[in-house]
Amino acid sequence: MSRTARGHHGRRIRTLTTAAVMATGLVLAAGCSSSDSGPAKAAGGVSVVHKGKLTTCTHLPYPPFQFEQNGKVVGFDVALIDLVAKDLKVEQDILDTPFENFKTGAFLNSGKCDLAAAGITITPERKKNVDFSIPYFSATQALLATKKSGVTSLDDLKAKHKKLGAQAQTTGEDYAKKRGFDPVSFESSDAVLNGLRTGQVDAVVIDYPVVQSWLKDKANAAQFTLAENIDTGEKYGFMVKKGNTKLRQTLDKAIQRAKADGTYNKLYEKWIGPLPQGQS
């Protein structure tokens, strides 16, 4: 998965872990707050770009991995990174940024963020610019179609000469192009869903967990149908600056521990849904 730019330089969003700070009246705003004192060390000697914080770059919204709820950013990725922040004895601070910066590692290399967590597929191209944690999620693509289109698969969509959409700069868009489509590109997952609702396209290719999240809404379930599951063998990872071995290892340990002690499964069921068959 990847997402495209929205023309901003980044905005901080309060997270569940910052609730206590907010209660004291300290407001997190775009850019660095007065409490930021520059680079520092967290527990275990891990370097962080802001003292007392683990700054995470993401691109909103992308439910169920990260999205705003009641003024805070929540989701599966957020919850996993909170575990890492706890290990480092800091709080997670989320910065909403253009996704194109993740492909080049720009926000990591410039010191704006410690890591990127945004439902990011590990690819050889991206690994040239950044380092990834071990995979934490096996992702598949899905074809979501309007019920009135009658589309049942990508082949069916092509045969019926229906319009396909995808989120720009994503692996879903890449897959559609490899299958011979020229998909309509949308800048965000919200725009993808709106494209379906307004009839700009008849179906879209996007990550399956996102489709799961959308179909939990009764209005969406009434209009759209999961036409096809597409196993592309993708795996998500968290990004760090190339060479940031200590933070990468801390991420790996947190993921491994969460899977071993059952925390991962609990978070999966809370934010995504039932565990895939055979996973425990």
Rank of each mutant, 00 (worst) to 15 (best):
S2F: 14
R3N: 06
T4K: 05
A5F: 11
G7P: 09
I13E: 14
T17Y: 07
T18E: 15
T24W: 04
V27T: 14
L28H: 12
A29W: 05
S33N: 12
S34W: 14
D36F: 02
S37Q: 11
A40M: 02
K41Y: 06
A42F: 01
A43C: 02
G45E: 07
S47W: 00
V48Q: 07
H50S: 03
T56S: 07
C57Y: 08
H59S: 10
H59A: 04
Y62I: 10
P64D: 09
F67N: 05
E68S: 13
Q69I: 00
Q69F: 14
V73A: 13
V73K: 11
F76W: 13
D77H: 11
D77A: 09
D82A: 13
V84W: 11
V84G: 04
A85M: 05
D87R: 06
E91N: 13
L95E: 14
L95I: 07
D96T: 01
T97K: 00
N101R: 12
N101Q: 10
N101T: 09
K103G: 08
F107C: 04
N109H: 10
S110K: 08
S110V: 05
G111F: 05
K112H: 12
K112C: 00
C113S: 08
D114T: 02
A116N: 10
G119W: 11
G119T: 05
N129S: 13
S133T: 02
P135G: 02
Q141H: 15
L143I: 01
L143E: 15
A145K: 11
T146V: 07
K148R: 12
S149F: 11
G150R: 08
V151P: 09
V151H: 10
T152A: 12
S153Y: 10
D156P: 09
A159Q: 10
A166D: 10
A166V: 05
Q169V: 11
Q169Y: 14
T170F: 12
Y175V: 01
Y175P: 04
K177M: 10
F181N: 08
P183M: 04
S188Q: 02
S189P: 07
N194H: 09
N194T: 14
T198M: 14
Q200D: 03
V204G: 07
V204W: 05
V205F: 12
P209R: 03
V210C: 04
Q212P: 05
S213L: 03
D217T: 06
A221M: 10
A221S: 15
T225K: 14
L226M: 13
L226D: 09
E228L: 06
D231K: 13
Y236A: 08
Y236N: 11
G237L: 02
G237E: 00
M239C: 10
M239Q: 15
K241D: 03
K242R: 11
K246E: 15
L251N: 01
D252P: 04
K253T: 06
K253Y: 02
I255A: 06
Q256D: 09
G262V: 00
G262E: 01
N265F: 09
Y268R: 02
E269T: 12
W271V: 00
W271K: 08
G273Y: 14
P274N: 05
L275M: 15
P276H: 14
P276L: 06
Q277C: 04
G278D: 14
G278T: 06
G278N: 12
G278E: 13
S280P: 05
